[in-house]
Amino acid sequence: MKSKLLVLPTRLLLLGILSVGLMFADSRTDSLRQVRSFVSVISLPVHVVASSPALFFRWVGGDLEDWGQLRRKYEDLQHQHLILQSRLQQLDALQFENDRLRDIISSAARIPDEGLFGRIVEVGPDLYDRTVLVNRGTADGVYVGQPVLGPNGVIGQIIRAGLFRSTVMLITDPSQGIPVQLMRNGLRTIVYGSGQGDLLRAPYLGRTADVRKDDIFITSGLAGRFPAGYPVGRVIKIQRDPNAPFLDVLAQPSASLGSAREVLLIWPGEDDGQRSDPATTSESIDR
């Protein structure tokens, strides 16, 4: 017994060092990315079992939706479809015109982004508030850093890709910044998660910047990670402190992050970065 008690601490120490080494390798380097993408397959049965009760109840709930409700929903969707369809017709014309104008200023034409639908997997406690799990993985071509969209705007980006599941970091995470511009006047800045209350914060807008309430931030495509033109958030509060060099701008995410069930994973068209590069654009205009 005594010897066993003596043996324990050295083993504890060894395992502790091993764990810390693993944590370091996993969070600071990319060396484990391949391994964990394959190993994560083990978690699939656990996720399937754990999410089955919720799926079952939703299925039952969906089945018990009454006729009138379904009818109303159907009509709503049909109206929405009609409206979107009519706007799409306009979009085609605009796209054509846009391409032609781009041709004139000899800027590269925009390649449409490709998308893949994914469902949000509901699992337990450790997916902290600002990450969600999606049922797509490297088997579907998902990569780390891939942008993820919701019905109304940007949701976040992939931070870890497993073979069949991957983790999305939401835009409300304070460690994530997205290059954006204001839809109204094209003013460029960067938006971060605010860290509390699921809001966004734009900390680098100067005191004299032209921002108003209800302005919309869209992705500018500058860093080459998020394709340009998708809505990110709507300005809800601007605090002007005469002593501070920057405005304190708070925005609400356009996508409903809390209630989204389905997401769109995007493979950006190839020349987004070049397209939005301000230097080349202005140069070609001058010419």
Binding site: G16, L18, S19, V20, M23, A25, D26, S43, D126
Partner: peptide, 17 residues
């Protein structure tokens, strides 16, 4: 750690302790 898609080694250390 694998199931939670978190940093590898975090729960490994805590459960060992």
């Amino acid at each position: 750690d694998v199931v939670s898609f978190g940093v590898l080694g975090r729960y490994a250390l805590s459960k060992t302790i």
